[in-house]
Write a protein that binds this DNA or RNA. Structure first.
Lengths: 264, 264
DNA sequence: CGGCTGCTTGAACTTGTTCAACAGCGGTGG
DNA sequence: CCACCGCTGTTGAACAAGTTCAAGCAGCCG
Protein backbone atom coordinates (compact mmCIF):
# COMPACT_ATOMS: atom_id res chain seq x y z
CA UNK A 1 0.00 0.00 0.00
CA UNK A 2 1.05 3.58 -0.41
CA UNK A 3 -0.13 4.27 3.10
CA UNK A 4 2.94 6.42 3.67
CA UNK A 5 2.08 8.70 0.79
CA UNK A 6 -1.58 8.79 1.72
CA UNK A 7 -0.69 9.77 5.25
CA UNK A 8 1.56 12.56 4.08
CA UNK A 9 -0.84 13.99 1.50
CA UNK A 10 -3.77 13.75 3.86
CA UNK A 11 -1.96 16.11 6.14
CA UNK A 12 -1.54 18.66 3.39
CA UNK A 13 -5.04 18.38 1.96
CA UNK A 14 -7.55 16.07 3.50
CA UNK A 15 -8.20 13.47 0.85
CA UNK A 16 -11.68 12.19 0.18
CA UNK A 17 -12.36 8.47 0.26
CA UNK A 18 -12.55 8.45 -3.52
CA UNK A 19 -9.13 10.06 -3.78
CA UNK A 20 -7.64 7.68 -1.26
CA UNK A 21 -9.07 4.84 -3.24
CA UNK A 22 -7.57 6.28 -6.44
CA UNK A 23 -4.19 6.53 -4.74
CA UNK A 24 -4.55 3.00 -3.46
CA UNK A 25 -5.40 1.75 -6.95
CA UNK A 26 -2.11 3.12 -8.22
CA UNK A 27 -0.26 0.68 -6.05
CA UNK A 28 -2.24 -2.20 -7.53
CA UNK A 29 -0.07 -2.05 -10.60
CA UNK A 30 3.03 -4.20 -10.82
CA UNK A 31 5.52 -3.30 -8.12
CA UNK A 32 9.21 -3.18 -8.80
CA UNK A 33 11.78 -4.46 -6.36
CA UNK A 34 15.20 -2.94 -6.66
CA UNK A 35 18.26 -4.27 -4.91
CA UNK A 36 20.54 -2.03 -2.89
CA UNK A 37 22.93 -0.09 -5.09
CA UNK A 38 20.92 -0.65 -8.27
CA UNK A 39 20.27 2.33 -10.51
CA UNK A 40 16.57 3.09 -10.94
CA UNK A 41 16.98 5.90 -13.46
CA UNK A 42 20.30 6.30 -15.21
CA UNK A 43 21.82 9.72 -15.87
CA UNK A 44 20.98 10.75 -19.43
CA UNK A 45 18.21 8.21 -19.72
CA UNK A 46 14.65 9.13 -20.57
CA UNK A 47 12.49 9.20 -17.48
CA UNK A 48 9.65 6.83 -18.30
CA UNK A 49 7.18 8.46 -15.95
CA UNK A 50 6.50 9.09 -12.34
CA UNK A 51 7.44 6.76 -9.49
CA UNK A 52 6.28 6.29 -5.93
CA UNK A 53 8.64 4.92 -3.30
CA UNK A 54 6.73 2.39 -1.25
CA UNK A 55 9.50 1.04 0.92
CA UNK A 56 13.25 1.49 1.25
CA UNK A 57 15.44 4.51 0.66
CA UNK A 58 16.83 5.95 -2.55
CA UNK A 59 18.77 9.00 -3.55
CA UNK A 60 19.24 11.38 -6.45
CA UNK A 61 22.85 11.58 -7.51
CA UNK A 62 25.09 13.36 -10.01
CA UNK A 63 28.59 12.21 -10.88
CA UNK A 64 31.39 14.31 -12.26
CA UNK A 65 34.85 13.53 -13.49
CA UNK A 66 37.45 12.28 -11.06
CA UNK A 67 35.05 9.88 -9.38
CA UNK A 68 33.39 12.63 -7.40
CA UNK A 69 29.66 12.36 -6.91
CA UNK A 70 27.06 14.40 -5.10
CA UNK A 71 23.84 13.16 -3.56
CA UNK A 72 21.11 15.74 -4.13
CA UNK A 73 18.28 14.32 -2.06
CA UNK A 74 17.19 11.26 -0.20
CA UNK A 75 14.01 9.56 -1.35
CA UNK A 76 11.98 8.04 1.45
CA UNK A 77 8.93 5.78 1.56
CA UNK A 78 5.92 7.79 0.41
CA UNK A 79 7.99 10.01 -1.82
CA UNK A 80 6.80 10.90 -5.27
CA UNK A 81 9.45 11.33 -7.85
CA UNK A 82 9.48 13.05 -11.26
CA UNK A 83 5.83 13.99 -11.45
CA UNK A 84 6.53 16.80 -13.90
CA UNK A 85 9.67 15.80 -15.69
CA UNK A 86 7.92 14.54 -18.78
CA UNK A 87 8.76 17.89 -20.36
CA UNK A 88 12.45 17.01 -20.12
CA UNK A 89 13.21 14.11 -22.36
CA UNK A 90 16.33 13.02 -20.52
CA UNK A 91 17.21 12.92 -16.86
CA UNK A 92 20.21 15.00 -15.81
CA UNK A 93 20.84 12.89 -12.72
CA UNK A 94 20.59 9.31 -11.57
CA UNK A 95 18.20 7.76 -9.08
CA UNK A 96 19.74 4.98 -7.06
CA UNK A 97 18.39 2.56 -4.48
CA UNK A 98 20.23 3.10 -1.20
CA UNK A 99 18.63 -0.01 0.23
CA UNK A 100 16.42 -2.73 -1.11
CA UNK A 101 13.41 -0.74 -2.31
CA UNK A 102 9.93 -1.29 -3.66
CA UNK A 103 8.58 1.25 -6.10
CA UNK A 104 5.62 1.66 -8.44
CA UNK A 105 6.14 3.07 -11.89
CA UNK A 106 3.29 5.19 -13.12
CA UNK A 107 3.28 6.03 -16.83
CA UNK A 108 2.43 9.52 -18.02
CA UNK A 109 -1.04 8.70 -19.36
CA UNK A 110 -2.07 7.46 -15.93
CA UNK A 111 -0.74 10.65 -14.37
CA UNK A 112 -2.78 12.69 -16.82
CA UNK A 113 -5.78 10.59 -15.99
CA UNK A 114 -5.38 11.43 -12.33
CA UNK A 115 -4.98 15.10 -13.10
CA UNK A 116 -8.25 14.99 -15.01
CA UNK A 117 -10.33 12.81 -12.73
CA UNK A 118 -8.97 13.67 -9.30
CA UNK A 119 -7.75 17.25 -9.43
CA UNK A 120 -7.48 17.53 -5.63
CA UNK A 121 -5.28 14.46 -5.49
CA UNK A 122 -3.19 15.76 -8.34
CA UNK A 123 -2.80 19.05 -6.56
CA UNK A 124 -1.59 17.22 -3.48
CA UNK A 125 0.96 15.38 -5.59
CA UNK A 126 2.10 18.72 -7.03
CA UNK A 127 2.53 19.96 -3.49
CA UNK A 128 4.81 17.05 -2.74
CA UNK A 129 6.79 17.74 -5.88
CA UNK A 130 7.18 21.43 -5.00
CA UNK A 131 8.30 20.53 -1.50
CA UNK A 132 11.00 18.36 -3.01
CA UNK A 133 12.22 21.41 -4.94
CA UNK A 134 12.19 23.36 -1.72
CA UNK A 135 14.36 20.63 -0.19
CA UNK A 136 16.87 21.13 -3.01
CA UNK A 137 17.10 24.81 -2.14
CA UNK A 138 17.69 24.11 1.52
CA UNK A 139 20.28 21.50 0.55
CA UNK A 140 22.20 24.25 -1.25
CA UNK A 141 22.13 26.45 1.84
CA UNK A 142 23.23 23.55 3.98
CA UNK A 143 26.25 22.76 1.85
CA UNK A 144 27.10 26.34 0.98
CA UNK A 145 26.85 28.02 4.35
CA UNK A 146 26.96 25.61 7.24
CA UNK A 147 29.84 23.94 9.04
CA UNK A 148 30.21 20.17 8.96
CA UNK A 149 28.54 19.82 12.35
CA UNK A 150 25.59 22.02 11.47
CA UNK A 151 25.26 20.29 8.12
CA UNK A 152 25.03 16.83 9.56
CA UNK A 153 22.67 17.96 12.31
CA UNK A 154 20.47 19.63 9.73
CA UNK A 155 20.31 16.54 7.59
CA UNK A 156 19.26 14.48 10.59
CA UNK A 157 16.56 17.00 11.51
CA UNK A 158 15.19 16.97 7.99
CA UNK A 159 15.09 13.19 7.81
CA UNK A 160 13.52 13.03 11.24
CA UNK A 161 10.65 15.34 10.28
CA UNK A 162 10.11 13.76 6.88
CA UNK A 163 10.09 10.25 8.26
CA UNK A 164 7.76 11.32 11.05
CA UNK A 165 5.36 12.63 8.40
CA UNK A 166 5.03 9.16 6.96
CA UNK A 167 4.89 7.43 10.31
CA UNK A 168 8.31 5.85 10.28
CA UNK A 169 9.56 7.42 13.50
CA UNK A 170 9.16 5.52 16.72
CA UNK A 171 10.06 7.24 19.96
CA UNK A 172 12.51 9.52 18.19
CA UNK A 173 14.19 6.59 16.48
CA UNK A 174 14.14 5.44 12.91
CA UNK A 175 15.88 2.98 10.64
CA UNK A 176 18.89 4.64 9.09
CA UNK A 177 20.39 2.58 6.28
CA UNK A 178 22.87 5.14 4.95
CA UNK A 179 26.61 4.50 4.99
CA UNK A 180 29.10 7.15 5.97
CA UNK A 181 30.37 7.14 2.41
CA UNK A 182 26.90 8.16 1.23
CA UNK A 183 26.61 10.75 3.99
CA UNK A 184 29.85 12.20 2.68
CA UNK A 185 28.45 12.37 -0.85
CA UNK A 186 25.32 14.02 0.49
CA UNK A 187 27.01 16.67 2.60
CA UNK A 188 29.98 17.42 0.36
CA UNK A 189 32.44 16.31 3.04
CA UNK A 190 35.10 13.59 3.10
CA UNK A 191 34.22 10.27 4.70
CA UNK A 192 36.88 10.84 7.32
CA UNK A 193 35.35 14.11 8.36
CA UNK A 194 31.86 12.64 8.34
CA UNK A 195 33.10 10.03 10.75
CA UNK A 196 34.55 12.62 13.10
CA UNK A 197 31.50 14.82 12.87
CA UNK A 198 29.28 11.90 13.83
CA UNK A 199 31.49 11.23 16.80
CA UNK A 200 31.08 14.81 17.88
CA UNK A 201 27.29 14.55 17.67
CA UNK A 202 27.43 11.39 19.74
CA UNK A 203 29.76 12.92 22.28
CA UNK A 204 27.38 15.84 22.69
CA UNK A 205 24.65 13.28 23.36
CA UNK A 206 22.50 14.64 20.57
CA UNK A 207 22.08 11.45 18.58
CA UNK A 208 22.87 7.82 18.96
CA UNK A 209 23.75 6.17 15.68
CA UNK A 210 24.28 2.47 15.95
CA UNK A 211 24.16 -0.27 13.38
CA UNK A 212 21.30 0.70 11.14
CA UNK A 213 19.27 2.88 13.46
CA UNK A 214 19.35 6.55 14.37
CA UNK A 215 18.02 7.74 17.70
CA UNK A 216 17.55 11.46 18.19
CA UNK A 217 18.33 12.01 21.86
CA UNK A 218 17.53 15.72 22.10
CA UNK A 219 15.71 17.12 19.10
CA UNK A 220 15.33 20.69 20.38
CA UNK A 221 19.05 20.99 21.03
CA UNK A 222 19.90 19.29 17.75
CA UNK A 223 17.57 21.65 15.89
CA UNK A 224 19.12 24.64 17.60
CA UNK A 225 22.62 23.52 16.74
CA UNK A 226 21.56 22.90 13.14
CA UNK A 227 19.64 26.18 12.92
CA UNK A 228 16.90 23.95 11.61
CA UNK A 229 13.80 25.83 10.53
CA UNK A 230 11.19 23.47 9.13
CA UNK A 231 9.43 26.17 7.15
CA UNK A 232 10.96 24.86 3.94
CA UNK A 233 9.04 21.62 4.37
CA UNK A 234 5.80 23.59 3.96
CA UNK A 235 3.99 21.61 6.60
CA UNK A 236 1.45 24.24 7.47
CA UNK A 237 2.36 25.26 10.97
CA UNK A 238 4.01 28.47 12.05
CA UNK A 239 7.73 28.88 12.08
CA UNK A 240 8.75 29.47 15.69
CA UNK A 241 12.03 31.11 14.74
CA UNK A 242 10.58 33.91 12.64
CA UNK A 243 7.10 33.88 14.09
CA UNK A 244 6.35 33.74 10.41
CA UNK A 245 3.04 33.47 8.63
CA UNK A 246 1.10 30.33 9.28
CA UNK A 247 0.46 28.34 6.18
CA UNK A 248 -3.21 27.49 6.17
CA UNK A 249 -3.92 23.82 5.66
CA UNK A 250 -6.28 23.34 2.78
CA UNK A 251 -8.63 20.95 4.50
CA UNK A 252 -10.28 21.46 7.88
CA UNK A 253 -7.57 21.68 10.49
CA UNK A 254 -9.13 19.47 13.06
CA UNK A 255 -5.93 17.72 14.02
CA UNK A 256 -3.15 19.01 16.18
CA UNK A 257 -1.06 21.25 13.96
CA UNK A 258 2.35 20.06 15.13
CA UNK A 259 3.39 16.84 16.80
CA UNK A 260 6.97 18.05 16.94
CA UNK A 261 8.72 19.84 19.77
CA UNK A 262 10.30 22.32 17.42
CA UNK A 263 12.27 25.39 18.28
CA UNK A 264 12.43 25.09 22.04
CA UNK B 1 8.60 42.89 -25.03
CA UNK B 2 9.43 39.49 -23.71
CA UNK B 3 11.54 38.87 -26.79
CA UNK B 4 14.14 37.18 -24.61
CA UNK B 5 11.66 34.63 -23.35
CA UNK B 6 10.14 34.12 -26.78
CA UNK B 7 13.56 33.50 -28.23
CA UNK B 8 14.40 30.94 -25.58
CA UNK B 9 11.10 29.07 -25.73
CA UNK B 10 11.10 29.07 -29.50
CA UNK B 11 14.29 27.10 -29.35
CA UNK B 12 12.73 24.47 -27.16
CA UNK B 13 9.44 24.21 -29.02
CA UNK B 14 8.81 26.26 -32.10
CA UNK B 15 6.02 28.58 -31.11
CA UNK B 16 3.18 29.36 -33.48
CA UNK B 17 2.36 32.97 -34.29
CA UNK B 18 -0.71 32.72 -32.08
CA UNK B 19 1.39 31.56 -29.15
CA UNK B 20 3.98 34.25 -29.71
CA UNK B 21 1.19 36.77 -29.76
CA UNK B 22 -0.19 35.33 -26.50
CA UNK B 23 3.23 35.64 -24.94
CA UNK B 24 3.55 39.16 -26.21
CA UNK B 25 0.15 40.06 -24.77
CA UNK B 26 1.36 39.04 -21.34
CA UNK B 27 3.87 41.84 -21.40
CA UNK B 28 1.13 44.35 -22.19
CA UNK B 29 0.10 44.28 -18.56
CA UNK B 30 1.54 46.79 -16.13
CA UNK B 31 5.30 46.38 -15.82
CA UNK B 32 7.05 46.69 -12.52
CA UNK B 33 10.36 48.46 -12.12
CA UNK B 34 12.42 47.37 -9.18
CA UNK B 35 15.50 49.19 -7.97
CA UNK B 36 18.75 47.40 -7.33
CA UNK B 37 18.77 45.64 -3.96
CA UNK B 38 14.99 45.74 -3.58
CA UNK B 39 13.22 42.56 -2.51
CA UNK B 40 10.72 41.31 -5.08
CA UNK B 41 9.35 38.43 -3.01
CA UNK B 42 10.09 38.34 0.68
CA UNK B 43 10.96 35.11 2.48
CA UNK B 44 7.80 33.75 4.12
CA UNK B 45 5.55 35.89 1.99
CA UNK B 46 2.83 34.46 -0.20
CA UNK B 47 3.91 34.32 -3.80
CA UNK B 48 1.24 36.25 -5.65
CA UNK B 49 1.75 34.47 -8.93
CA UNK B 50 4.22 33.98 -11.69
CA UNK B 51 6.69 36.58 -12.88
CA UNK B 52 8.71 37.13 -16.03
CA UNK B 53 12.03 38.95 -15.91
CA UNK B 54 12.11 41.34 -18.84
CA UNK B 55 15.35 43.17 -18.11
CA UNK B 56 17.94 43.23 -15.39
CA UNK B 57 19.22 40.47 -13.13
CA UNK B 58 17.77 39.04 -9.95
CA UNK B 59 18.58 36.20 -7.63
CA UNK B 60 16.92 33.73 -5.31
CA UNK B 61 18.34 33.92 -1.83
CA UNK B 62 18.00 32.29 1.58
CA UNK B 63 19.33 33.83 4.78
CA UNK B 64 20.25 32.02 7.96
CA UNK B 65 21.33 33.17 11.38
CA UNK B 66 24.66 34.87 11.79
CA UNK B 67 24.18 37.06 8.74
CA UNK B 68 25.06 34.23 6.37
CA UNK B 69 23.10 34.04 3.15
CA UNK B 70 23.16 31.82 0.12
CA UNK B 71 22.23 32.73 -3.43
CA UNK B 72 20.43 29.80 -5.04
CA UNK B 73 20.12 30.96 -8.62
CA UNK B 74 20.50 33.97 -10.81
CA UNK B 75 17.43 35.18 -12.67
CA UNK B 76 18.15 36.60 -16.10
CA UNK B 77 16.09 38.46 -18.68
CA UNK B 78 13.60 36.01 -20.18
CA UNK B 79 13.43 33.93 -17.03
CA UNK B 80 10.12 32.69 -15.74
CA UNK B 81 9.80 32.44 -12.05
CA UNK B 82 7.40 30.52 -9.81
CA UNK B 83 5.12 29.09 -12.46
CA UNK B 84 4.01 26.25 -10.22
CA UNK B 85 4.42 27.53 -6.73
CA UNK B 86 0.77 28.37 -6.23
CA UNK B 87 0.49 25.06 -4.37
CA UNK B 88 2.83 26.43 -1.70
CA UNK B 89 1.19 29.25 0.12
CA UNK B 90 4.40 30.85 1.32
CA UNK B 91 7.76 31.28 -0.27
CA UNK B 92 10.69 29.69 1.51
CA UNK B 93 13.21 32.05 -0.06
CA UNK B 94 13.50 35.63 -1.19
CA UNK B 95 13.76 37.00 -4.70
CA UNK B 96 15.92 40.09 -4.93
CA UNK B 97 16.79 42.48 -7.73
CA UNK B 98 20.54 42.39 -8.32
CA UNK B 99 20.26 45.35 -10.65
CA UNK B 100 17.52 47.68 -11.68
CA UNK B 101 14.98 45.25 -13.17
CA UNK B 102 11.74 45.25 -15.06
CA UNK B 103 9.33 42.41 -14.44
CA UNK B 104 5.75 41.48 -15.25
CA UNK B 105 3.56 39.93 -12.61
CA UNK B 106 1.12 37.39 -13.94
CA UNK B 107 -1.66 36.32 -11.59
CA UNK B 108 -2.66 32.67 -11.30
CA UNK B 109 -5.94 32.96 -13.22
CA UNK B 110 -4.05 34.27 -16.23
CA UNK B 111 -1.63 31.38 -15.97
CA UNK B 112 -4.51 28.94 -15.91
CA UNK B 113 -5.98 30.70 -18.89
CA UNK B 114 -2.77 30.16 -20.83
CA UNK B 115 -2.66 26.51 -19.80
CA UNK B 116 -6.17 26.10 -21.15
CA UNK B 117 -5.96 28.12 -24.34
CA UNK B 118 -2.33 27.67 -25.35
CA UNK B 119 -1.23 24.27 -24.12
CA UNK B 120 1.93 24.25 -26.25
CA UNK B 121 3.00 27.60 -24.82
CA UNK B 122 2.23 26.39 -21.33
CA UNK B 123 4.29 23.28 -21.94
CA UNK B 124 7.19 25.44 -23.02
CA UNK B 125 6.87 27.46 -19.83
CA UNK B 126 6.89 24.21 -17.85
CA UNK B 127 10.06 23.25 -19.66
CA UNK B 128 11.67 26.48 -18.52
CA UNK B 129 10.53 25.84 -14.97
CA UNK B 130 11.93 22.31 -14.98
CA UNK B 131 15.22 23.56 -16.35
CA UNK B 132 15.43 25.97 -13.45
CA UNK B 133 15.06 22.99 -11.09
CA UNK B 134 17.80 21.26 -13.01
CA UNK B 135 19.97 24.33 -12.44
CA UNK B 136 19.39 23.99 -8.71
CA UNK B 137 20.68 20.42 -8.83
CA UNK B 138 23.81 21.43 -10.71
CA UNK B 139 24.30 24.28 -8.25
CA UNK B 140 24.45 21.69 -5.46
CA UNK B 141 27.08 19.69 -7.32
CA UNK B 142 29.04 22.84 -7.97
CA UNK B 143 29.15 23.87 -4.33
CA UNK B 144 29.45 20.38 -2.92
CA UNK B 145 32.13 18.89 -5.12
CA UNK B 146 34.15 21.48 -6.98
CA UNK B 147 37.11 23.63 -5.99
CA UNK B 148 36.79 27.39 -5.88
CA UNK B 149 38.33 27.75 -9.32
CA UNK B 150 36.11 25.12 -10.92
CA UNK B 151 33.09 26.58 -9.18
CA UNK B 152 33.63 30.07 -10.48
CA UNK B 153 34.46 28.82 -13.97
CA UNK B 154 31.33 26.73 -13.97
CA UNK B 155 29.16 29.63 -12.93
CA UNK B 156 30.58 31.72 -15.76
CA UNK B 157 29.95 28.94 -18.28
CA UNK B 158 26.37 28.58 -17.14
CA UNK B 159 25.69 32.29 -17.34
CA UNK B 160 27.36 32.46 -20.72
CA UNK B 161 25.15 29.75 -22.21
CA UNK B 162 21.97 31.03 -20.59
CA UNK B 163 22.58 34.59 -21.69
CA UNK B 164 23.45 33.41 -25.17
CA UNK B 165 20.08 31.63 -25.30
CA UNK B 166 18.31 34.94 -24.87
CA UNK B 167 20.62 36.83 -27.20
CA UNK B 168 22.50 38.85 -24.61
CA UNK B 169 25.97 37.66 -25.55
CA UNK B 170 27.98 39.70 -27.98
CA UNK B 171 31.28 38.31 -29.21
CA UNK B 172 31.70 36.25 -26.06
CA UNK B 173 31.02 39.26 -23.86
CA UNK B 174 28.09 40.16 -21.72
CA UNK B 175 27.06 42.69 -19.10
CA UNK B 176 27.92 41.34 -15.68
CA UNK B 177 26.39 43.40 -12.89
CA UNK B 178 27.22 41.08 -9.98
CA UNK B 179 29.47 42.21 -7.14
CA UNK B 180 32.12 39.95 -5.66
CA UNK B 181 30.11 39.90 -2.45
CA UNK B 182 27.20 38.37 -4.35
CA UNK B 183 29.49 35.95 -6.14
CA UNK B 184 30.66 34.83 -2.70
CA UNK B 185 27.08 34.27 -1.58
CA UNK B 186 26.40 32.32 -4.75
CA UNK B 187 29.43 30.05 -4.58
CA UNK B 188 29.60 29.54 -0.83
CA UNK B 189 33.07 31.14 -0.67
CA UNK B 190 34.39 34.16 1.19
CA UNK B 191 34.68 37.46 -0.69
CA UNK B 192 38.42 37.39 -0.23
CA UNK B 193 38.70 34.03 -1.86
CA UNK B 194 36.35 35.04 -4.66
CA UNK B 195 38.65 37.93 -5.38
CA UNK B 196 41.71 35.70 -5.56
CA UNK B 197 39.93 33.11 -7.65
CA UNK B 198 38.93 35.79 -10.15
CA UNK B 199 42.52 36.93 -10.33
CA UNK B 200 43.55 33.39 -11.10
CA UNK B 201 41.02 33.14 -13.93
CA UNK B 202 42.30 36.42 -15.31
CA UNK B 203 45.94 35.38 -14.99
CA UNK B 204 45.15 32.20 -16.91
CA UNK B 205 43.65 34.43 -19.62
CA UNK B 206 40.34 32.62 -19.47
CA UNK B 207 38.13 35.60 -18.74
CA UNK B 208 38.45 39.31 -18.58
CA UNK B 209 36.24 40.85 -15.93
CA UNK B 210 36.29 44.60 -15.90
CA UNK B 211 33.87 47.13 -14.56
CA UNK B 212 30.51 45.68 -15.33
CA UNK B 213 31.33 43.39 -18.24
CA UNK B 214 32.57 39.83 -18.52
CA UNK B 215 34.48 38.69 -21.56
CA UNK B 216 35.05 34.97 -22.02
CA UNK B 217 38.45 34.78 -23.67
CA UNK B 218 38.62 31.02 -24.21
CA UNK B 219 35.35 29.19 -23.69
CA UNK B 220 36.58 25.69 -24.55
CA UNK B 221 39.41 25.92 -22.04
CA UNK B 222 37.17 27.50 -19.42
CA UNK B 223 34.60 24.75 -19.94
CA UNK B 224 37.26 22.09 -19.62
CA UNK B 225 38.61 23.61 -16.42
CA UNK B 226 35.08 23.84 -15.04
CA UNK B 227 34.14 20.34 -16.19
CA UNK B 228 31.16 22.12 -17.64
CA UNK B 229 28.64 19.79 -19.27
CA UNK B 230 25.64 21.70 -20.57
CA UNK B 231 23.37 18.66 -20.53
CA UNK B 232 21.64 19.96 -17.40
CA UNK B 233 20.39 22.93 -19.38
CA UNK B 234 18.32 20.54 -21.52
CA UNK B 235 19.00 22.43 -24.70
CA UNK B 236 18.47 19.54 -27.04
CA UNK B 237 21.85 18.86 -28.49
CA UNK B 238 24.13 15.96 -27.65
CA UNK B 239 26.47 16.02 -24.74
CA UNK B 240 29.98 15.80 -26.15
CA UNK B 241 31.43 14.49 -22.91
CA UNK B 242 29.24 11.45 -22.56
CA UNK B 243 28.22 11.11 -26.17
CA UNK B 244 24.87 10.95 -24.48
CA UNK B 245 21.42 10.74 -26.02
CA UNK B 246 20.37 13.67 -28.11
CA UNK B 247 17.30 15.35 -26.81
CA UNK B 248 14.97 15.78 -29.74
CA UNK B 249 13.72 19.28 -30.20
CA UNK B 250 9.95 19.30 -30.31
CA UNK B 251 9.60 21.50 -33.34
CA UNK B 252 11.33 21.01 -36.70
CA UNK B 253 15.05 21.39 -36.18
CA UNK B 254 15.80 23.57 -39.13
CA UNK B 255 18.30 25.71 -37.34
CA UNK B 256 21.82 24.86 -36.41
CA UNK B 257 21.59 22.81 -33.26
CA UNK B 258 24.41 24.47 -31.37
CA UNK B 259 25.97 27.88 -31.82
CA UNK B 260 28.44 27.11 -29.06
CA UNK B 261 31.91 25.69 -29.33
CA UNK B 262 31.33 23.28 -26.51
CA UNK B 263 33.57 20.48 -25.37
CA UNK B 264 36.52 21.04 -27.63
C1' DC C 1 38.88 -19.22 6.91
C1' DG C 2 39.37 -15.29 3.61
C1' DG C 3 37.81 -11.39 1.51
C1' DC C 4 34.83 -7.59 1.25
C1' DT C 5 32.64 -3.53 2.91
C1' DG C 6 32.19 -0.08 6.20
C1' DC C 7 34.05 2.27 10.28
C1' DT C 8 37.90 4.35 12.90
C1' DT C 9 42.26 6.57 13.86
C1' DG C 10 46.69 9.44 13.34
C1' DA C 11 49.44 12.79 11.08
C1' DA C 12 50.73 15.79 7.40
C1' DC C 13 48.92 18.85 4.44
C1' DT C 14 45.83 22.23 1.63
C1' DT C 15 42.22 24.97 0.76
C1' DG C 16 39.77 28.44 2.01
C1' DT C 17 38.62 31.78 6.15
C1' DT C 18 39.21 35.61 9.11
C1' DC C 19 40.89 39.86 10.42
C1' DA C 20 42.60 44.08 9.30
C1' DA C 21 43.95 47.61 6.50
C1' DC C 22 43.90 50.34 2.34
C1' DA C 23 42.76 52.12 -2.40
C1' DG C 24 39.45 53.71 -5.91
C1' DC C 25 35.20 55.58 -7.12
C1' DG C 26 30.83 57.78 -7.23
C1' DG C 27 27.55 60.37 -4.83
C1' DT C 28 26.15 63.91 -1.54
C1' DG C 29 26.10 67.83 1.17
C1' DG C 30 28.39 71.90 2.99
C1' DC D 1 34.57 72.83 -5.43
C1' DC D 2 36.06 69.96 -2.00
C1' DA D 3 35.50 66.93 2.04
C1' DC D 4 33.46 63.06 3.40
C1' DC D 5 31.08 58.72 3.28
C1' DG D 6 29.80 54.21 1.91
C1' DC D 7 30.45 50.57 -1.18
C1' DT D 8 33.39 47.55 -3.88
C1' DG D 9 37.60 45.60 -4.83
C1' DT D 10 42.41 44.34 -3.32
C1' DT D 11 46.20 42.76 -0.40
C1' DG D 12 48.94 40.44 3.50
C1' DA D 13 49.37 37.33 7.22
C1' DA D 14 47.72 34.27 10.73
C1' DC D 15 44.58 30.79 11.29
C1' DA D 16 41.06 27.02 11.09
C1' DA D 17 38.33 23.68 8.90
C1' DG D 18 38.33 20.02 6.28
C1' DT D 19 41.19 16.72 3.08
C1' DT D 20 44.33 13.24 1.96
C1' DC D 21 47.01 9.34 2.73
C1' DA D 22 47.72 5.33 5.07
C1' DA D 23 46.83 1.85 8.08
C1' DG D 24 44.17 -1.05 11.14
C1' DC D 25 39.91 -3.02 12.88
C1' DA D 26 35.15 -5.10 13.10
C1' DG D 27 31.47 -7.49 11.24
C1' DC D 28 29.40 -10.18 7.72
C1' DC D 29 28.88 -13.49 4.19
C1' DG D 30 30.20 -17.09 1.19
Amino acid sequence: MSSHLARKLDRFARLSLVEKEALFTLTRRPLRNVARGQVIVREGEASPGMRIFLSGWGYRCKSIEGGRRQILAFLLPGDVCDLNTYVLSHSDHAIVAATQTTIVDIPHPTVEDIAYRHPALFRALCWDEQVSVSLLREWIVNIGQRTALERMANLFCELFVRLDLVGLVNESSFAFPITQTDLAAATGLSTVHVNRTLQELRRAELVSLTGRGLHILDFPRLARLAQFRPNYLHLGYPDPATGAPVQQPVGPADRAPSPLPIGT
